[in-house]
Design a protein around this nucleic acid. Sequence first.
RNA 1: CGGGGUGUAGCUCAGUUUGGCUAGAGCGCCUGGUUUGGGACCAGGAGGCCGAAGGUUCGAAUCCUUUCACCCCGACCA
Length: 580
Amino acid sequence: MRYSQTLIPTIKEVPADAEIISHQLMLRAGLMRKLASGTYIYLPAGQRMLNKVIQIVRKEMNRAGAQEITMPVIQPLELWQKTGRDIDYGETLGTFIDRHGRGNVLSPTAEEGFTFLASNEINSYKQLPMNLYQINTKYRDEFRPRFGVLRSREFIMKDAYSFHADEECLHKTYMQMYDAYCRIFERCGLEYVIVLAESGEMGGSGSHQFTVPCDNGEDVIVYTEDDKQAWNLEKAPADALPKQPAVEAAPAKNVHTPNTGKIEEVCAFLKLKPCQLIKTLIYRNGDDVMLALVRGDHEANPEKLTRLMDGARLDMAEEADIVKLTGAAVGFAGPVGLCDKVSKVFIDHGVAAMAVGATGANKTDYHTLNVVPGRDFPLEGENIQIADIRNAVEGDTYDGKKLLFKRGIEVGQVFKLGDKYSKKLGANFLDADGKQKSCLMGCYGIGINRIIASAIENGHDEHGMILPITIAPWEVIVTPAGKEEDVMAAAETIYRQLQTAGVEVLIDDRDARGGVKFKDADLLGIPIRVTVGKKTLAEGLVEFKLRTESDRSTLPLNTAAQKVAETVKDMKAKLNQPKA
RNA sequence: CGGGGUGUAGCUCAGUUUGGCUAGAGCGCCUGGUUUGGGACCAGGAGGCCGAAGGUUCGAAUCCUUUCACCCCGACCA
């Protein structure tokens, strides 16, 4: 490719609306431009990166036995109503009504479509297992698109769905996908961490997330100090805290605490620390009301609560319900006297371990002091359960090992879905025993754009991107530094030789000064630069420089292309032959 | 959706508080010249419905009302 004939609109200044480095560099290096909030136009260099990532994903999926198809992005709302996800997915689901008055969904994920296909085409256990995937644009009407391509309204996802006759078969494919994902991310040159995840909205029984550690990530990874286990925050377990030594506590008493509905306000007023408070959260499942008690400095984890409820949906109670239950305004609920009025009380280990604490008095503008768990409210009973119901925090342990935290970008996730979708959409088959059964399903997603953004988050310096050769827009840039005829001719020769050798090469044939070309080459993050200059050329040499190194070396003109082609091959081989 | 902020040249931003002549700078772009290995220099030039609509006023980028877009924090989220 000739620089003069392509569109790589680099910019010197940092665009005002780009906050994080990957977003800034993707704009500055001319990979993309914004069309509207959360939607981006990919320009030639960005498109080449997308294509390369897609090609890696496609090859590894095929290699793992999955079949590529294309699902329409526009899908009948009716199909989504059958699984109830027109409601469950929430307002993030993009819909429109067409001229015939039909409801349509802009697909944010495609369980329904793939299961619809399976319900029609799969009849017999002999057709199973089957693993189908697509690489397609997805749409989500995000509340708040942000971080450039990391949370956008439109993005490219590879999504695969597998169908099975039994659990063992599902597990086998699940592990094949797991291994394929490892290979994909290694080939893309990403550092990644695999964490145990909640399967959340998708329903199902098992899930791993593939996460690239990065300060700008939206996800929190929790891992043990020996690096042996990792979870996302929703799933991370925490050991019970040691029981605090009992103290001689005065009887519980109510004190007037005006306008202190929030933890910080109570603490400021009573001169207590948040860890001396008991926070009482009120949840609802249909008509059942539940309490969750966590320490004031802890956060309740709805996923953990849902798990204790065998997956039943939990909602925070409405203000009116809280007032009715506690007889007080929101912010003054407490367990004392409230435990037998609800169907279930979940008490976090941290609260059970407290010797004494303060909590809401179930009376507006009052709190109760000297509350002793077990004395002033029960720690045992039919509707009482002590459990791990909060997010782990700094200082927690699991299995005696210290828990550590870092942020990450989720680039892929694998799920076992079970029969949630196949049942609702009738994806059945006749088994060998002649009985009709629902398919068991797995689903496996990869965010293509996020791979690019996270590669940049972790691969850049003050000059620009530093890209793995497998996903860089070009492998080599040939830079003639000077307009002399022999310089241009030598650069053209190397360019042609590299092309012939199958190297993806960009020649910077622009009528520009050397400095401009060097800056753009660095910004674009092209792994190898070959510079042809007047002085070195006089000695029959050209310069060779890796983007990752600051040193330059020289190569003889006549063998330069061959050497460079070999280096390219070696660099690619290093990434393309993953350990996994 | 709640809170905060910003919309002025392709980009980054002055100017708005206190209304007043032809609306500015740097970068980028075009022309000519000098340069030519790390975002050159000189001279000349093009480029604006000051986000949009309405209002106040002799007069509005500036004041008022409405509205739209974008960004940040929060809530939400395969």
